[in-house]
């Protein structure tokens, strides 16, 4: 597999930043950055990361199963992550998540039929003092109300270059 030029450059730097012989350390960051470009963690991607980091595909596979941001199935172009952990729960996070489910017509870790949106009820994303919080791809949105979420989702650009995921 070959990635985009900027990603190839990033991976070259990444492999060089760990001590000699410790290139396995690049497995997790390489997976997450590659996922952004490929769309999901595919079998080919696992084999490619294993080859580049000098480990077996099984060693990469077991890592994929552990980290919640790594997805084996494609997620939406816009991955909507609603936090319902305590700080968000106290100020309407659960209601906001229910609203998002109704609005998008999908549930936890599901994707809309057109592939535009996926939804995830996430654990604390570190926005507690500005709750309730939503992260769309890698963009944080604070003090989100149902109306604000509608606006946000309705106004996301169609261009393929806006989303950080599936770029």
């Amino acid at each position: 597999m070959i990635f985009s030029a900027p990603l190839e450059e990033k991976f070259a730097r990444m492999l060089a930043q760990y001590p000699p012989g410790r290139q396995r350390s690049a497995v997790v960051p390489m997976l997450i950055y590659a996922q952004d470009e490929v769309g999901s963690i595919t079998k080919e991607l696992i084999e490619e990361v294993a080859r580049r980091c000098g480990v077996t595909p099984l060693q990469v596979d077991e890592v994929v199963g552990y980290y919640s941001m790594l997805h084996r199935k494609p997620i939406g172009k816009y991955h909507v992550q609603v936090c319902t952990n305590i700080s968000c729960q106290l100020v309407g996070g659960e209601e906001l998540y229910e609203h998002a489910k109704r609005k998008l017509g999908i549930g936890h870790r599901e994707v809309t039929r057109d592939g535009r949106f996926s939804l995830e009820e996430v654990e604390c994303i570190g926005a507690c003092s500005w709750a309730p919080a939503v992260e769309i791809n890698y963009d944080f949105h604070h003090q989100v109300t149902a109306e604000k979420l509608d606006q946000l989702l309705d106004n996301l650009p169609d261009s393929d270059h806006q989303g950080a995921a599936n770029k």
Binding site: Q17, R22, R24, S25, A26, V27, V28, P29, L31, I32, Y33, C53, V55, Q59, E62, V63, G65, Y66, Y67, S68, M69, L70, E123, C124
Partner: peptide
């Protein structure tokens, strides 16, 4: 002195220092 960033990929457990070390070595945390 050289300094680098390293991305996690979603795991509260990796905030525990020894789990973080396993994670930075490319393993499950």
């Amino acid at each position: 002195f050289d300094l680098y960033t390293h991305s996690g990929a979603g795991a509260y457990e990796c905030g525990e220092e020894t789990a973080l070390l396993d994670s930075i070595e490319g393993k499950r945390g």
